[in-house]
Nucleic acid binder design. Structure first.
Length: 364
DNA sequence: TACACGTGGTA
DNA sequence: TTACCAAGTGT
């Protein structure tokens, strides 16, 4: 064990810490839909949705998802397009595809029972060290660490640990701390309480230390340095991509749609055909050549765009310029392209940027 | 290890 | 407006 961690842990009264923390949680825990029971599947879905995503954002998605896919079997046998549609707008879409893949694995290899073995559950797609610990502790009362951003922030303050929580190597230090602090009788409430404390009290900026149930256990508070922790290095800025997008309509009134590649950004989602702009040529000319080359579609492209919009991802920005075009063609090449009517476009999963384009069209 | 991977909310 | 964030994982 790290020497500093060992030193800091020796200053803790862990039994009193557990008692104060869990008593606070029992009194103050939010009434959230995934806390209705300890069904491992319900816990699992919630943990995947909550990755890098706010509770308020997740709640309506979670309720719809559980209504549509109430059991492991329901999700295992659902078409992927239905799952992606249910995930539309949540982001990090590989979570949805990995979840369904893992659920199918549980159905086929484990008789539909989410495994309790840390090695087995960690081998499931999309289940990393945090999610494995969360499911095992919350659903099965197994004393495994569930270290997320909240827990690292809370523990960096409680134990006055100055490890950079942005570094992957720091995770294991906090996991080790949890293994020493966790309440073996109620690991579910202990882990949830640590996260709840981080979400409600021990917030990133201006923590509410005067309301904190474990204030007397907090080394950072005792030294008045809670605002200096945790240490978290900054990320680099995002790059910008100039994108040309075209809404092609044929004589039936159907729109040309393209399904994105199965790997990478927005995998398997549908979009209006788009490509990265070459700075030299005129946009309408580039679009015409793009449609002929990639879709075998001869189209007449408007001279001026109908819409300009930026879309910001976590790691890049699309500067989108959207044109409309008309064609007499009824066929298109590429098995990932299709002509869609209005109902079909409503039915498939689009990235938020393209859903905005569509909604803009509907409102004009 | 560092970066890809989404989105909407907040200071 | 920029920057950071919010219950991380895969490569």
């Amino acid at each position: 064990m790290q020497e500093t961690l060992q030193n800091q842990l020796e200053k803790m009264n862990e039994k009193e810490f557990q008692k104060d923390l869990i008593q606070w949680f029992e009194k103050e825990m939010r009434d959230l839909p995934w806390r209705k029971n300890q069904d491992p599947y319900r816990v699992w879905v919630s943990e995947i949705m909550l990755q890098q995503t706010r509770v308020d954002t997740v709640i309506p998605y979670y309720n719809r998802f559980m209504e549509q896919f109430p059991t492991i079997e329901a999700l295992a046998f659902a078409p992927e397009e239905k799952v992606l549609k249910a995930w539309e707008g949540l982001g990090y879409y590989s979570r949805a595809r990995n979840l369904q893949s893992a659920v199918r694995e549980v159905h086929e290899q484990y008789g539909g029972q989410v495994p309790k073995d840390p090695k087995e559950i960690s081998a499931l797609k999309g289940v990393g060290p945090y999610t494995a610990g969360a499911i095992l502790s919350i659903a099965y009362d197994i004393p495994e660490p569930a270290v997320d951003g909240n827990v690292m922030r809370v523990l960096s303050r409680i134990l006055s640990l100055w490890d950079d929580i942005a570094k992957p190597s720091s995770r294991k230090i906090f996991e080790e701390a949890v293994r020493h602090l966790i309440n073996k009788e109620n690991p579910s409430y202990f882990n949830q309480a640590m996260m709840e404390l981080g979400a409600l009290i021990c917030t990133p900026t201006s923590p509410s230390c005067l309301l904190c149930p474990v204030q007397e256990h907090c080394l950072a508070f005792s030294e008045g340095i809670q605002r200096d922790l945790p240490v978290k290095t900054k990320k680099k800025s995002t790059k910008v991509i100039d994108l040309l997008t075209v809404m092609v309509q044929n004589q039936d009134g159907d729109w040309l749609m393209n399904q994105r590649p199965a790997q990478g950004l927005l995998a398997n989602l549908w979009e209006f055909p788009s490509f990265e702009k070459q700075q030299e040529q005129e946009s309408a000319v580039q679009i015409q050549e793009f449609l002929k080359t990639d879709f075998n579609v001869e189209a007449v492209v408007d001279a001026e765009p109908v819409l300009v919009q930026d879309h910001v991802f976590s790691h890049l920005t699309w500067k989108m310029v959207i044109f409309k075009a008309k064609t007499k063609d009824q066929t298109s090449i590429g098995d990932r392209a299709a002509w869609m009517n209005r109902e079909a476009i409503e039915r498939v999963a689009l990235p938020v940027s393209h859903r905005k384009i569509w909604n803009h069209y509907l409102s004009t």
